[in-house]
């Protein structure tokens, strides 16, 4: 076989190098992790025709097909052209030219999401719809960004371990006269969430400070005294990552922001990355970029031109808590070179 393969170029077209020389795994995007089931026959065709018959449910919800031989890649790319057109352009409205070269970029990773309120009783938002809107904002950027969208603060989508974790919130509203003081919401809030509800004079009072926006009160309320404000709100976590050196959980950046704010913030990511990376799109977790720029510079750039809604809360500082497998990670030599000795 040909032993002269440009691994990096192939990688940018979403083919991942295999330990078997000359073989690759194609990672097809499925923004938000939801596509029509009929596309599975397409996956099967690729796996059976050009792959090794296996299919991996990708860790970032890609449709991953291993065992594709280097020489078959042009055929595969021709075959997936229609899928890319239908998913990226037609479904998500991504502004891109679909060619026979396969995926144009890998920087912006597939957007993950839990099933959200197209199915889940706990979800506060349609995660699929938001993932598709975000895909349009981030793709096809060469700059690395990992986003996960969770339907509720339970964060099954693991937004806490992504550059951006976007969590759907319910701003529940209380109808004093409809409340019968049964305390079911108090019990539910204490059990599932932060216990911000209490009883006063036979009715409910809420400590709005620490409400996480899960919507459990609305779910359990027998009379419809608690209902969701139909406007969707979001929490945005930043800087979460896994990794060998310094995995860490993302931290709260924005709370109670609208979808418009979320989309505008994500749109600013590319400019921020470009500045921090001096316009060289290399693979670094978003958290490292924020570390490099410093939180204040990050905040300034990422909120540039963003009109925050009145309910919005913005983190004044971030207290990272890293697991430092590689110690002294934040300490750097004065002149860039570690002294001998």
């Amino acid at each position: 076989m040909n032993h002269d393969l440009d691994i990096k170029k192939l990688r940018n077209h979403c083919y991942r190098q295999s330990k078997v020389p000359g073989e690759f795994m194609l990672q097809m995007r499925a923004p938000g992790g939801v596509i029509e089931a009929r596309y599975l026959s397409l996956v099967q065709h690729i796996a059976d025709t050009w792959g090794n018959g296996l299919f991996h449910l990708g860790m970032r919800q890609t449709l991953s097909i291993p065992g594709i031989k280097y020489e078959d890649i042009p055929a595969v790319n021709r075959y997936i052209k229609q899928y890319i057109q239908e998913i990226e352009v037609d479904l998500c409205g991504v502004d891109m030219e679909v060619t026979e070269e396969g995926y144009p970029a890998i920087g912006a990773r597939n957007i993950m999401a839990c099933i959200g309120n197209i199915h889940c009783i706990k979800a506060n938002i349609n995660t699929t719809a938001l993932a598709r809107k975000l895909e349009r904002v981030i793709y096809p950027s060469p700059y690395h960004i990992k986003i996960s969208v969770a339907g509720c603060p339970n964060d099954c989508a693991k937004g806490h371990f992504n550059d951006f974790g976007i969590i759907g919130l319910a701003k529940t509203e209380y109808d004093y006269d409809r409340c019968i003081g049964c305390k079911k919401c108090i019990e539910a809030c204490a059990k599932h969430a932060t216990g911000v509800l209490s009883m006063e004079n036979g009715k409910i009072v809420k400590d709005t400070c620490c409400c996480v926006g899960c919507g459990e009160c609305a779910l359990v309320c027998p009379t419809g005294a608690w209902t969701r404000n139909p406007t969707k709100f979001y929490r945005v976590l930043i800087g979460g990552r896994t990794g060998k050196q310094t995995p860490r959980m993302g931290k709260l950046f924005l709370n109670w922001v609208t979808e418009e704010v979320v989309l505008r913030v994500i749109k600013n990511w590319e400019d921020f990355s470009a500045e921090v990376l001096e316009h060289k799109p290399v693979y670094l977790h978003g958290g490292h970029l924020i570390d490099r720029a410093g939180y204040n510079r990050f905040k300034e750039m990422i909120l540039k031109g963003v009109q925050l809604n009145p309910e919005a809360m913005v983190a004044q500082r971030i207290l990272w808590t890293e697991t430092e497998y590689r110690s002294n990670f934040n300490v750097r030599p004065v002149n860039g070179v570690r002294a001998e000795g």
Binding site: N124, G168, A170, G215, A218, C221, T227, P230
Partner: peptide, 15 residues
């Protein structure tokens, strides 16, 4: 119809 005020998100309450 109370749009979006149902028990689950994006469902309506009729009362």
């Amino acid at each position: 119809r109370w749009a979006g005020r149902g028990r689950y998100s994006d469902t309506d309450l009729i009362r």
